Computed example of a mutant assay.
Amino acid sequence: MLILVACVVIFIYGMMASLLGTIVPSLGATLSLTNTQIGYLALAQGLGLAGTSVVAGAFMDSKGKMAGVVVGLLASLVGLTMLSHPTSLLLSVIAMVILGCGGSLVIVGSNAIASDVPDDRRAATITFLNVFVGLGGFATPFVAGNLLGSDAVKSAYCGIGIVAIALVLTLLTPFPKNRPELRRGRAETVSIFHSGVLYVLASITFLYTACEFGIWNWLPKFLIATGLPNAKALNILSLGFASGLLIGRLLATKLLTKASTYYVNLVCCSLMCLSLFAVLRFPAAAGGAPLVFFTGLVMAPIFPTTIAIVGKLFQQRSATAIGFAITCGFSGLVVSSPLIGWLAGTDPSGLKRGLMLLPAMSAAVVVILVLFRNRLVKTTE
Rank of each mutant, 00 (worst) to 15 (best):
M1Q: 03
A6W: 03
V8F: 07
V8Q: 05
S32M: 09
I38R: 08
G39I: 07
L41Y: 15
A44M: 11
A44V: 08
L49H: 05
G51I: 04
S53Y: 02
V55S: 01
D61Q: 01
K63W: 00
G64A: 01
V69R: 00
V69Q: 02
G79T: 05
G79S: 08
H85L: 07
L90C: 04
V93T: 14
S104G: 13
N111W: 00
S115E: 01
V117F: 00
D119A: 12
A124Q: 02
F128L: 15
V131R: 02
A139W: 09
A156F: 03
V163D: 08
T170Y: 06
T170M: 09
L172T: 13
P174R: 14
P176C: 04
P176Y: 04
E188N: 12
S191F: 14
H194R: 14
H194I: 06
S195W: 00
G196V: 13
G196H: 11
V197F: 15
A202T: 13
S203Q: 10
S203W: 12
T205D: 10
F206H: 08
Y208I: 01
A210Q: 06
F213M: 05
G214P: 05
G214M: 12
W216C: 06
W218C: 05
L219K: 05
F222H: 08
F222D: 03
F222S: 03
A225T: 07
G227V: 09
F241M: 12
S243V: 13
R249E: 03
A259I: 14
T261L: 01
N265A: 09
V267K: 00
C269T: 15
L274D: 03
S275G: 08
L276D: 07
V279W: 04
A285G: 07
A289Y: 02
P290C: 12
T306G: 11
I309E: 10
L313R: 09
L313A: 14
F314M: 04
Q315L: 06
R317T: 02
S318V: 04
A321Q: 02
F324R: 00
A325G: 09
G332Q: 08
V335Q: 01
S337V: 15
G345N: 07
G345Y: 11
L351Y: 12
K352F: 03
P359Q: 12
M361C: 05
V370L: 15
F372Q: 10
N374S: 12
K378A: 11
